[in-house]
């Protein structure tokens, strides 16, 4: 469904991504992992052309992303950045904004009722008239996800959606994401630092290191070696209630 072929990107002369190729299917939760500065965020932004790749090809259902208009990109991908400025808008209006790629001049009645429905489903209905700056980080993350869903995208891109959340909110956010991927047969690409959270919810893992795709594994096929090579850290892997768990040891000498 989402295919990436030989994608490269540079900032000026410095290569940030080189020759990345990967495929993500409907219902997959593809987790992009790797150390800081490996190019995870850049990769996500190259997929929906927030950044223009230097070379390579991205396509969704066979349609090349390079030939899509901005509005069409907004109907194909929903992107939730790691941080967003907090604006003085109500939750309802912030979520309603998700209809933007589908409208020309103004929101229709249907756009408004769709917003109400999604707020209901995400458990945000009681907050709909609250302002974003009055919400907690977890609630704001949910608002972002609700808005992204309202875009009715084929691919959902999430940049470290759990990094500012407490334990409960991390789990809730990821539960929501995996439910969405299943129910709406969306392809999800999510970048993450937390290996254990990734192992619990991901179906497919892509490891980036210094801009290159160094390992990729399906759920259940991830090995200790891979993690050690990518992060340069000694780790233990055990199973806990059917899910693999990574326990970090000491850093490896370079």
């Amino acid at each position: 469904m989402l295919t990436v072929q030989n994608l490269s990107f540079r900032y000026g002369a410095a290569p940030v991504l080189s020759e990345i190729s990967l495929t993500v299917e409907r219902g997959d939760i593809a987790v992009v992992l790797g150390p800081n500065g490996a190019g995870k965020t850049t990769l996500l932004k190259c997929l929906n052309r927030i950044l223009a790749p230097a070379s390579g090809k991205v396509s969704v259902e066979g349609r090349p992303v390079a030939s899509m208009s901005r509005s069409e990109l907004g109907r194909t991908f929903a992107y939730i950045p790691q941080t967003q400025p907090v604006t003085e808008t109500t939750v309802f209006d912030a979520v309603l904004l998700g209809r933007r790629p589908h409208i020309a001049w103004r929101m229709s009645r249907k756009d408004v009722t769709m917003t109400a429905a999604i707020l209901d489903r995400m458990g945000l209905a009681d907050l709909s008239l609250r302002y974003l700056d009055e919400l907690s980080g977890g609630e704001r993350q949910k608002v972002g996800i609700a808005r992204a869903l309202l875009q009715e995208p084929k691919v959902l891109l999430l940049d470290e959606p759990t990094s500012n959340l407490d334990l409960r909110n991390q789990l809730e956010a990821m539960e929501t994401v995996s439910r969405i991927a299943r129910e709406h047969a969306m392809a999800v690409v999510v970048s993450m630092h937390d290996l254990n959270l990734a192992l619990r919810y991901g179906t497919h893992f892509f490891f980036l290191k210094k801009g290159c795709l160094v390992e990729n594994a399906l759920q259940g096929a991830l090995t200790r070696d891979m993690v050690e090579r990518v992060y340069d850290v000694r780790v233990e892997m055990t199973m806990h209630r059917g899910t693999p768990v990574v326990l970090p040891g000491e850093p490896l000498p370079n």
Partner: peptide, 11 residues
Amino acid sequence: DSGDETALGLG
């Protein structure tokens, strides 16, 4: 208002 990246993502 929600930032350039969010706006680009919204088309």
